[in-house]
């Protein structure tokens, strides 16, 4: 078993989930509470990664973040290395790729908070930051859990973006899904079965843990 790939996948999924929640909570709050005309366009944009095949998204990132564009050169100057074929590059790719899986549950959860409560908070002078931290997030806690779980699992299972952007470097871009693919392609079915079993077991354990704690919370509330 390749523990390096296992650890790398966990690290990638954790970092990606943390960044996604930091982006998605304010974004979802803006989409639900905001009144601006261009918000539907923003929501559409945040959902768009669902449409693009992951390999295509990976290819666009490879070209866009490569040293042949101003964006790519800027990032390379900032980090000291180009983004492609590095862990940081995979984080950028994963955040974009899993964005809808973090934003959509949060939008649904925030929208389910009764408008009487948000209106009352607004009348009492709560600013947008206060509304999010004291009202939306506590009331939509289950959506937050769902968003985190989906982001995490979607990143663990991510393949196309990593394939295009990664370059299969052990310890920095060879994730479990790439390892699994390599094993299958190299006719090493026994190893592939082991990797797949570990991947599935890990996800089942994580899901059961998350759902049992959020279930308890639901029970206490009711």
């Amino acid at each position: 078993m390749d523990w390096q790939a296992f650890a790398l996948t966990l690290r990638l999924a954790t970092v990606t989930t943390a960044i996604l929640l930091a982006i998605a909570v304010p974004l979802a709050a803006l989409l639900v509470l905001g009144r601006a005309r261009w918000l539907p366009a923003l929501e559409a944009l945040a959902t768009l990664p669902l449409v693009l095949p992951p390999t295509v998204l990976g290819f666009f990132l490879l070209v866009l973040l490569g040293p042949r564009t101003a964006v790519g050169r800027g990032i390379a100057a900032l980090l000291g290395h180009p983004l492609a074929f590095s862990f940081d590059g995979l984080v950028v790719g994963s955040v974009l790729y899993s964005l809808p899986f973090a934003v959509q549950p949060l939008v649904a959860g925030f929208a389910a908070v009764p408008s009487s409560l948000t209106d009352a908070a607004r009348l009492l002078g709560a600013g947008p930051a206060r509304m999010v931290t004291s009202l939306l997030v506590p009331l939509a806690r289950r959506s937050l859990v769902t968003a985190a779980v989906l982001s995490f699992l979607h990143t663990v299972g991510e393949f196309g973006v990593v394939l295009m952007l990664g370059g299969d470097i052990p310890g920095s871009t060879r994730t479990l899904s790439i390892l699994l693919y390599n094993q299958v392609e190299n006719f090493d079915y026994a190893a592939a079965e082991r990797t797949a079993a570990i991947l599935l077991a890990m996800c089942v354990v994580a899901l059961v843990a998350v759902y049992s704690t959020s279930q308890q919370r639901g029970g206490n509330r009711g």
Partner: peptide
């Protein structure tokens, strides 16, 4: 083909 793409896009 992908190896060529890595070089053509300037990443390698």
């Amino acid at each position: 083909a992908q190896a060529a793409q890595f070089v053509d896009s300037g990443n390698a």
